[in-house]
């Protein structure tokens, strides 16, 4: 096994302009915020982001004009914190193109990539404008066996999945406690995975209970120790609710066009 531990800057430097990234977690939960903040500092453009329900790691990149395409089923900060301000602004100003799906369609696209096929079929979906308006992503096709209509969703292969997890070893074996949402699938769909972990632990932790390993090490390109790396979001069992002041500060920053100052503040505090 090969050691892959590095600092956040080095991991962020793996990303190139224009790449497709899949950030793990679900909305506020285990969003790889520390990674997203550091990436937003780099000033890359034309990034493409995909996952079922995206969080602040994605939103701050939208707010910094780093994103030109989003694939999502849902993108918001739930009842407590409302709409995602960076995404909303980018879309309303026409800077970001959205390939919207129900969450299952994003999952179908990732499953296609994970299985090495150009599309994955799923039931339902037709009749909505999602299908009519995104022929580059969805097509209605007929079963070759009995003519039943199904929707084909085009494969999405992220250049990197970026996942914030509870524990990882120095080789990249990673464990998620609580729901893994689409993180395990993202690691199989992406070309490579970057892990940010609350804690680096010995490999024996994984050998003692291999059933609890979410990501095997060979899929992983980088491991970064990032305690509280999902803040101002949360992480099951460790910090179970959002950092209210942090979320409000972020929303205020987007509203007042003061994201760079916010970013400088949060990344400086981590350094």
């Amino acid at each position: 096994m090969i050691r892959k531990v590095m600092d956040m800057k080095s991991a962020v430097n793996l990303i190139k302009e224009g790449q497709l990234l899949g950030f793990g977690g679900n909305s506020l939960h285990r969003t790889p915020a520390a990674f997203g903040f550091e990436l937003a500092n780099r000033g890359l453009k034309k990034l493409k982001l995909c996952n079922t329900a995206q969080g602040i790691a994605s939103d701050i990149l939208c707010a910094m004009d780093a994103v030109d395409t989003l694939y999502f089923g849902f993108f918001g900060f739930e009842n407590q914190y409302g709409l995602a301000p960076g995404m909303r602004k980018g879309c309303q100003e026409g800077k970001i193109k959205v390939m919207e799906g129900p969450c299952t369609a994003i999952i179908a696209a990732l499953r296609a990539s994970a299985c090495g096929v150009p599309f994955m079929t799923m039931a339902g979906l037709w009749g909505s404008q999602l299908i009519d308006q995104l022929p580059g992503f969805y097509r209605v096709v007929e079963s070759p066996f009995d003519g039943t209509k199904v929707v084909a969703v085009k494969a999405l292969r992220p250049d990197y999945a970026v996942l914030h997890v509870h524990e990882a070893d120095e080789f990249g074996n990673a464990r998620i406690n609580g729901s893994d949402y689409q993180d395990v699938l993202l690691s199989r769909a992406a070309a490579k995975t970057i892990i940010t972990a609350e804690k680096i632990v010995p490999t024996k932790t994984f050998q003692d209970n291999p059933k609890l390993t979410s990501i095997p090490h060979f899929l992983v390109a980088a491991v970064v120790e990032a305690p509280e790396g999902a803040k101002p979001g949360y992480c099951f069992g460790l910090y179970d609710t959002a950092d209210d002041a942090g979320m409000k500060a972020y929303q205020k920053a987007v509203k007042e066009n003061a994201v760079p100052a916010y970013l400088a503040n949060v990344t400086e505090r981590r350094a």
Binding site: G116, R188, Q207, I215, H217
Partner: peptide
């Protein structure tokens, strides 16, 4: 075959994803 394993998943993962996708 399981001794010292670091991860257990299943055949959908191993064959259906990791092998089939190249």
């Amino acid at each position: 075959i399981s001794a010292n394993a670091t991860s257990f998943t299943n055949a959908i993962d191993a064959l259906g994803c990791l092998v089939a996708s190249g």
